[in-house]
Amino acid sequence: MQAPSPAGLRSSEAASGLPSRTLNSGRTASTPQRHRHHYRGLLWHENLDGWLFIAPWVAGFVIFTLGPMLASAVMAFMQWDILTRPKLVGLGNFATLARDPLFSKSLGNTAFYTFIGVPLYLVLSLLAAVLLNTGVRGMSIYRTLFFLPSLTPAVANALLWVWIFNPDFGLANALLWWLGLPPQKWLFDVNLAKPSFIIMGIWHIGSQMVIFLAGLQGIPETLYEAAAIDGATAWRRFWAITLPMLSPTIFFNLVIGIIGSFQVFTTAYIATGGGPQNATLFYVLYLYRNAFDYFRMGYASALAWVLFAIVLVFTLAQFWIARTWVFYEAELVA
């Protein structure tokens, strides 16, 4: 946005024939034109400094993100195996996709993981945040402990959970035995493999919890005090104050959670390889296989853009629905 040009202010002066003025520096602004040039020069330098500061990020974004994105958009219409020249196939990849049973299988697996996992993680992370926000002693330690698993590398995380879910000696079946329940095959059971992945995801609620905690701590205490004076119960205060005031944070975690869940890959690649019987063949894992195992980078690019479109549609839908349930404090005040 350009700063208002002082020339605009001066032009009436000039037009009126008023004499020129002496600037504080002692220089004489003999014409409005000189003022305009001087001011534009300052603006140019300020702008340039700003752009230079963000240029490294922009360059990285263009080279490592935007450029490859545009390249893959072109590759989606090509048959390309990386090693040879790409061949234009038009919409052929998208037509293949429509007939590919593993496309729908992988999308279904990913949708299951997303639409069951994301709400579960939201609820659990909100619950954890609410508990931590009660001001218990050692809250910072608990907060750290909850957040630490989010920092574990994905591969280490996957190997750890493979061990936990081992049917013979894993901790999961040990817990079931202690509860008097029968052991399960977990990652080896077609019906339990995806729920096992959802359980693995609970390990990472720490990052959402921290965001919720920040949101909770931003809710004015006066609201709770006023409600308490009016006789509102704890549940009523939570429902009528906490949730509405926290709705922007919930919305943020929901959007980010759905985007992230649709891209689940590393754990499936390490823990199950997509098995048993493709029960954990998630979308991005299938995309990866097409790109690097099956020499179908063009088809993989088409898969990537279809995923982008699906995630975009979901995100836009969430923004649209959010008008009915997300309340921003600024809007309320206004």
Binding site: V58, A59, V62, I63, L66, G67, P68, L70, A71, V74, W80, I82, T84, R85, P86
Partner: peptide, 17 residues
């Protein structure tokens, strides 16, 4: 940015055949 994107796209599209 547009010029840089175009350059980046062209360079990333180049396949060493």
């Amino acid at each position: 940015i547009g010029v840089a994107s175009a350059a980046g796209t062209l360079s990333s599209c180049a396949v060493a055949v």
